[in-house]
Amino acid sequence: MKNVIFAGVGGQGVILASKILMEVAMNAGYDVKESEVHGMAQRGGSVDCNVRYGEKVYSPLIPREEADFIVSLEMLEVLRKLDYLAPAGKLIVNREKVDPAPVQTGAMKYPSDIEEWVGKNVKNAVFVDTEAILKELGTRKALNIVMLGILSKDLEFTGEQWEAAIRSLVKEKFLDMNLKAFTMGREYKETA
């Protein structure tokens, strides 16, 4: 079984990213389950989606210590999810900082050494810079799909399988942009 956590803040589109991953996995013949949060938790709060696929999936929630991948669309959120990472699991972290309310009001500081600390303590972690890609795409809304593209290199599905899933789930109007975002993510060169 593969376990993937998408972490981020409300509005970053983690649910769509998980939906596409689930679609790919289902079409490849796997059982899939997912768990997500809605409602009050979404109002600028931390959000995460758990996606699991394999022969047979019971729990929609990934237990701590069992995530094969944590894809964090925001830097700080990775610290909240680290207990979920499996010993051989991989972190993929977007270098974007979204200040939480206590930082905005000046009551707390945004931790300054996340990347350094993670580099020291987590063997398998990559920090990615999506800024240039998003600029070229002309929209920040594609961040979720860019990150999915980056993750896709580590999963067993082909480019065609991904494209088919994106085509079946993304609205016509946004399709070209999202396909491009996915490809740019998939072609992104990681510097570990």
Binding site: V9, G44, L76, E77, L79, P100, M108, K109, P111, D113
Partner: peptide, 11 residues
């Protein structure tokens, strides 16, 4: 992670 307190992200 214990360098600094992790700021919560309340809705």
């Amino acid at each position: 992670y214990e360098t600094e307190p992790i700021p919560p992200r309340p809705p």
